[in-house]
Nucleic acid binder design. Structure first.
Length: 257
DNA sequence: ATGCCGTGGAAACCACGA
């Protein structure tokens, strides 16, 4: 079973790229972030014609998350992150697919830091960590996939010294990620490639992709059940080089049946 | 050190992203 996550940076502007990638790589489950489309503007028919059932939580202009499944219907569990009724941003969607709980997340960027946006990021991270703990306690197979907007360690940044005060790399955020993982999650890419430089994002500026000036901010966290089933993982970095690409590349894992 | 590019939405600029 192949599960992927892809921050599309606008699903309608990205539709040709998304459909080509789905057709070429045929993941079984896909978590999408940054739809940047209201609920009624999700391209449901094109996704269905590509062979995928979908649930999504859209939002006008920003945010928005979706879960796609091939040969299965995602059973929605919740469409927002618990813990703050006043948080209206569409950043979390959870579904059960073939017995696996799939959490699709778009963690806040948090810049500029310090400031209210950074405070919101840290609060969101705390709520997410609490929810992740409850998922672990359920003892079900769980995957938490998405754009975490965190580079966990220095090898996840092309020039770490330039990012120390950035909301994606500040100590508070790296510590929050470590606290989350230490609950008992496995960072899928790092389990298979503990020391390799692997990026999932390249800025649109300054030929970042061509220079491989990237960041690793899109992650898969696996519960113990799924960690033992992990057989492969990677980044479809070539997609980042396609015409009209997102600034993120798709990331994927393969689980044994 | 930096939003230089890209997207969406409103309105020919602005907010936002990482």
């Amino acid at each position: 079973m192949k599960i992927a996550t892809y921050n599309v940076n606008g699903i309608n502007g990205r539709l040709p790229v998304l459909l080509r990638w789905l057709n070429e790589t045929a993941p079984d489950v896909v978590c999408l972030q940054e739809l940047k489309a209201p609920q009624e503007k999700f391209p449901e028919k094109a996704i269905q014609d590509a062979g995928y059932n979908a649930i999504w939580h859209g939002q006008k202009s920003w945010n928005g998350v979706a879960i796609l499944a091939r040969n299965a219907q995602p059973a929605e569990v919740q469409r927002e992150l618990p813990g703050d009724p006043e948080d209206l941003q569409s950043r979390y969607l959870e579904a059960t697919i073939n017995g696996i709980s799939v959490g699709c997340l778009y963690l806040p960027n948090g810049n500029p830091a310090p400031g209210p946006k950074f405070d919101y990021k840290l609060r969101w991270f705390e709520r997410f960590t609490a929810h992740a703990a409850s998922l672990l306690a359920s003892d079900k197979p769980v995957v938490l996939a998405g754009d975490y907007n965190v580079m966990p360690t220095e090898i996840d940044v092309y020039k770490p010294e330039r990012w120390v005060n950035d909301a994606l790399f500040r100590q508070e955020v790296r510590l929050a990620f470590k606290t989350l993982v230490d609950q008992g999650w496995t960072d899928a890419i790092r389990k298979l490639y503990p020391d390799e430089i692997i990026y999932t994002f390249w800025d649109y500026f300054r030929n970042a992709y061509e220079r491989n000036a990237g960041l690793r901010i899109d992650h898969f966290l696996l519960s113990p059940h799924l960690s033992s089933r992990l057989i492969a993982a990677g980044v479809d970095r070539n997609v980042r080089g396609w015409e009209k690409s997102s600034d993120h590349g798709p990331v994927w894992i393969e689980l044994s049946d």
